[in-house]
Design a protein around this nucleic acid. Sequence first.
DNA 1: GTGTTAGTGATAATCGTTCTCACTAAGGAC
DNA 2: GTCCTTAGTGAGAACGATTATCACTAACAC
Lengths: 146, 146
Amino acid sequence: MATSHTQSTAGVRDLYGGRRVSAARRTIADAAALIRGAFTVEQLHDAVQLSEPGIGIATVYRAVAAMSATGSVAPVGYRAGSALYALCPGGTHHHHLVCTGCGSVVGIACPVDRSLEDAARKTGYTVTGHEVTLYGLCRSCAGECD
Amino acid sequence: MATSHTQSTAGVRDLYGGRRVSAARRTIADAAALIRGAFTVEQLHDAVQLSEPGIGIATVYRAVAAMSATGSVAPVGYRAGSALYALCPGGTHHHHLVCTGCGSVVGIACPVDRSLEDAARKTGYTVTGHEVTLYGLCRSCAGECD
DNA sequence: GTGTTAGTGATAATCGTTCTCACTAAGGAC
DNA sequence: GTCCTTAGTGAGAACGATTATCACTAACAC
Ligand SMILES: [Mn+2]
Ligand SMILES: [Mn+2]
Ligand SMILES: [Zn+2]
Ligand SMILES: [Zn+2]
């Protein structure tokens, strides 16, 4: 049995909001934390298999949906037809810059400020939400030279 | 034959870049212009059928891909599992505010400024692109009262 | 401890999108 | 205008990510 979870039980509880925390969901949360970057559900499922074979991919889909609902996982775009997600424990509003080379992710400040919403309001619209994602290259993916 | 195209041939040429412009692509461009808001490929296909039955949905997918490649059509999110697009003839860099009620779309200024990219650069990342979409309600979808 | 029911895993189903292929016609060369 | 090349077309099959189904198990409120 490969049951050494890096997250405390209380920490995992937070990730899933008030929902039940099963052994599978603990393993899935641990695997997501180890990836530490953008992942598809299939990639996360593969990572999960390494420590706990037998966990079904439907369970990974459900765990990602549950963590998305609480905001502890955020969608960060699409890659080759699959949705990309990243673990996002921080509580404050922010967005993500994703390395298109390796999938690493850093948080960025929200650029949607009052003035933009005011401009939108002038056209008669009420702004209820927004999506912002930046793409780029991390230091190691950008350069030959270092 | 319902062959009264609102777009000039030259205008349609621009939409498709240097590519060949068939009768089907003229009809598709006209239908997209009439929708004047966000649409799924299936919705656009339905609209096309009204004036020219027989145009296959694969042809609509290909036309949307061609217009996306030239920037005359922009992706503006997802609705119920399908990609949303909007006609976007303007040449300057901007983003979109989509009414979640009726699908109407207005352009908005890009909020990703130098300072945000500088902050990203400080973390070691080079920014190569970004996606920004705002969601909200247009005047008629927002209020009972008017 | 018990009971309720959310979560699980295998599998099938869904469905948006892409591919295949034989055919047609756009448009450049002359 | 005619010819040629080949991009575009339409029908249908194929693909594949995601979701639904269902009998079973276990989380956790009491
Ligand atoms: Mn984050
Ligand atoms: Mn636009
Ligand atoms: Zn990288
Ligand atoms: Zn509206």
